[in-house]
Simulated scan of single mutants.
Amino acid sequence: MSALLKRQLLRGLLLAACLPGVVMAASIQVLNYSSREVNYIAVENPGNTNSGGGGDSIDPYGQGGTICCFSVPEKWHAELNVVVAYQFYPDPTLHRETVSIPPYPNGKAGDIWLIVYEDGSVGAVVSHYGPSLPEWPGKIKGYPVATKEYRTQRRKAKIELEKKWLDTMEKGLARNSNKMTVTEIDELKDVIEYKKKLIQSLEGMHP
């Protein structure tokens, strides 16, 4: 038996061990319930890093798009595990964590959902139902929602950025007005006024 044939046979045995019985192609979706930016997240079969699917990047408290595909068994079994491979920005470390798949809701297979929790741990479920439905088997019900603290932090960062732009434009106008046409000056003044109103609006917002 050739080395190539042996490797192919071994891969088939690994897949068979991880996904017994009839399998189906499942779309991959991601939920990030944490305040950390996910630079990379994917799913693999245990012991087979070449069997992965995914690779999405997810904003804090965000949801990834649907990616195809990963094989899951049509029927759930107690030994059903997958490996979640993930990386948080800006840390370059790639983590791999083996997680158990809970029973399929109503015994029906569906998409595989990779989940990032607030404490940085990960999980996965296979579900035909989304997080907003009562049948959802995940530990957290509902889609990710940013915390008040995170919204406040983002708003402050936005205000700081807009103030820097405003300061740059005001200094540019004072320094270069003698080199600008009347139309250019008026256009820049309009942008400056817009920035001032935007900052005022952001400062008056409740998180």
Rank of each mutant, 00 (worst) to 15 (best):
E97V: 13
V83R: 00
I199D: 09
A157S: 13
L166W: 12
I115H: 01
V72S: 02
I140C: 02
R175T: 14
A174F: 04
K189A: 00
N81Y: 14
V145P: 04
A85S: 14
F88C: 11
G65R: 13
V99H: 08
A174K: 10
R155E: 02
E162R: 13
Y194G: 15
V82P: 06
A157T: 03
R175Y: 08
K75M: 02
E74C: 01
L114T: 03
T168Y: 13
V116K: 01
T168C: 06
V122G: 12
E170W: 01
D91S: 15
V82N: 03
C69L: 00
E170Y: 06
D91V: 09
E149D: 12
K197T: 13
Y104Q: 00
P103R: 04
I115T: 02
I192R: 05
A174R: 09
S121N: 14
S177L: 06
R154S: 01
A85M: 06
V182I: 09
G172C: 09
P105M: 02
V72A: 08
A146D: 11
K197E: 15
S132M: 09
E193W: 13
I185W: 03
E187F: 08
R175F: 07
Q153P: 03
V126Y: 06
N106A: 10
N106M: 08
P105T: 03
W113H: 05
D119I: 05
V125H: 03
N81D: 13
T98K: 14
Y104W: 02
G138D: 12
A174S: 11
P92Y: 15
Q87K: 15
E149H: 08
G65E: 14
T147N: 12
I185H: 10
V83H: 02
P103L: 04
H77S: 10
Y194R: 14
S121G: 11
E184L: 05
P105F: 04
